[in-house]
Design a protein around this nucleic acid. Structure first.
Lengths: 346, 346
DNA sequence: CTGAAAGCGCTAACAG
DNA sequence: CTGTTAGCGCTTTCAG
């Protein structure tokens, strides 16, 4: 081990090289030469020494001293899911602008893991936290919130938690989807739901229910199936609903994968989409229009969700004030493609 | 500001509460009670005090003292791209197992940004770096490599840089794609390439060239077009090749978006896929089988790329030894779907 | 078995 | 205009 101990260039090294004290070196490099009335000559001396030696101040030491790490924590259930990746992207870019770095963690859809990861991040003195929570328990999040740092919840929110939250207009989106189907004469609509426990799922169900009831159409819970936002769940629940209710003429899938599963199921059962079976899905995907049956979607503005969260965090960080508005809704867009067809008149 | 200064629970607080010195408290909590022969009673006292006060050791202080941050940097060109997101995911999960956290950054396909981000990460004393580099310049990466920490390059690698690199078998994949087409009687094959400067692109071209030549078929560079891995590039280059060489019966697209663009072009020109025009694409996508024309693909094992990189890093970190093998190739899978058809006999 | 003290690299209050 | 000193919270000698 011939590791040269001189290898680490510290402020001391620079100060020595410039023939000044560490404090002067620190001030000169921190751009405080003016306010401390350091001579131009000295400043230049220090700057040159630093440059020459390739001095890079240790952010760890700086963090300990200043109690500011410049870190923002981001915790999502699955970073390989494009939806969460997009959110992470926006937060990352916005953070960078303000000189912050992002600590990323993947909770793997586990509340426990999420809790542990957040604790670890707090140990690292993150200055803000953006999380797409898993599950229905929000106490650990509330705890983080009370720790004083900005905390923003995205997507999977908690209606009665007094926290800053950003979410799509799930109720309005579901309403739009159902309205689209009703307009085409559909009355027997199956619902392929995602993770039942999540608020987005519940709100979409609420939207469906209220829209149907406002049209005097009963909301039949046996026409709802599914337990996840996956292709498998979509496939199973489509099979289930279609066999239980052969009169079904339309399906509302709560995610694109759910819709893909439904497409597969329809093909297996021998139903033609959209002539015999219309499909509309929550969530857009870049490939929706290239599908065999271009999919009509209620598209979430993912980037907007991300930028909104990022702005809330950076504003809070800059001003030191919590945002006045707690709940933030981002509009959804209705994208009509071929997968919705007039209801077959039997 | 009634911010209670007692709010931060430090080791000192715990030591005081337990009636011992900070050193004893530190040792008791670090699980070094045995080796320092601390009495069971004292240890319990400290543990209980810590528990009661909700003590959480500051990782910043610990990092400064131990010179170990437990941070791994991950830099990718675009985290919202599922390919890079998958890599980030694997590294994140593996890191977590070893108690590391991941600093994530998005270079936005800019070498400059990448360089700056890496420097910032180095300032934060990351202990390892995983990067999917942008561009053809690898000097800043080599610099990071020389800094002594494990550095692993993924996907966009540099053939002659003496660094640890993980990449798909692009040559073998291209060979497989061309072989598939040759077997179906295709002789006039167009190539829709991606970013020409990147090594994956060059290697795929190499694979195409050598495969054709081994079959005594000339490699005609006028049958190659394209400048990016995007849908737009795929569309334009397909149009270009098809008009320049109307005898083209098959296209090899270097990315899924390239293939999508080709599909669009084919539709515009009035060519039936796959009857009149076969298409095979590098890179798989989860939706490939649901497309109007299910796409045959040479599928990269993205998770494998990620886990390989992650393992290389964690092994290096654990053992302190650089891996013996520098270049790591991950096999590709050939997925036959309907988009390849026998060459039309004219 | 335990405590006192030094120091990781930096910033800032205090003192010229 | 600049230097000395203290201290951020922790770990680890060195002394008992």
């Amino acid at each position: 081990m011939s590791k040269n101990p001189l290898e680490t260039i510290t402020l001391q090294t620079v100060a020595d090289a410039a023939g000044v004290s560490v404090s002067t070196a620190s001030r000169a490099l921190a751009g405080k030469a003016k306010s401390y009335r350091i001579s131009d000559k000295t400043e230049k001396l220090v700057r040159e020494a630093a440059e020459r030696l390739g001095f890079r101040p240790s952010r760890v030491a700086r963090s300990l001293r200043s109690q500011r790490t410049g870190l923002i924590g981001v915790v999502v259930p699955d970073i390989s899911n494009p939806f969460f990746a997009a959110i992470a992207k926006e937060v990352t870019l916005e953070a960078e602008v303000d000189g912050y770095s992002v600590l990323l963690a993947d909770s793997r859809e586990s509340t426990e893991t999420e809790q542990r990861l957040i604790t670890e991040f707090l140990d690292r003195q993150i200055e803000a936290l953006v999380v797409c929570p898993v599950g229905t328990e929000s106490t650990h999040l509330a705890a983080a919130d009370r720790s004083g740092i900005p905390v923003v919840l995205v997507d999977r929110t908690f209606p009665d938690a007094d926290m800053v939250q950003v979410t799509s207009d799930h109720i309005g989106g579901a309403k739009a989807a159902i309205t689209l189907l009703l307009e085409q004469g559909h009355r027997n609509i199956g619902i392929l739901q995602g993770l039942p426990k999540t608020l987005p799922n519940q709100q979409r169900l609420d939207g469906v229910r209220s829209t149907l009831q406002s049209q005097q159409i009963p909301f039949d819970t046996t026409r709802v199936a599914g337990d996840n936002f996956t292709e498998t769940s979509g496939h199973q629940s489509a099979i289930e609903i279609l066999s239980r209710h052969p009169d079904t003429t339309a399906l509302f899938a709560f995610s694109t994968p759910n819709a893909m599963g439904a497409l597969r199921a329809a093909a297996e059962v021998g139903l033609d989409v959209p002539r015999q079976l219309s499909i509309v899905a929550f969530d857009d995907a870049p490939f929706a229009e290239f599908l065999k049956v271009p999919l009509s979607t209620i598209s979430q503005d993912v980037r907007r969700l991300g930028t909104t969260a990022a702005k809330l965090v950076s504003n809070h960080l800059r001003t030191g004030k919590r945002p006045h508005q707690k709940l933030h809704h981002v509009d959804v867009a209705i994208i009509r493609r071929l997968s919705i067809h007039e209801a077959p008149t039997c």
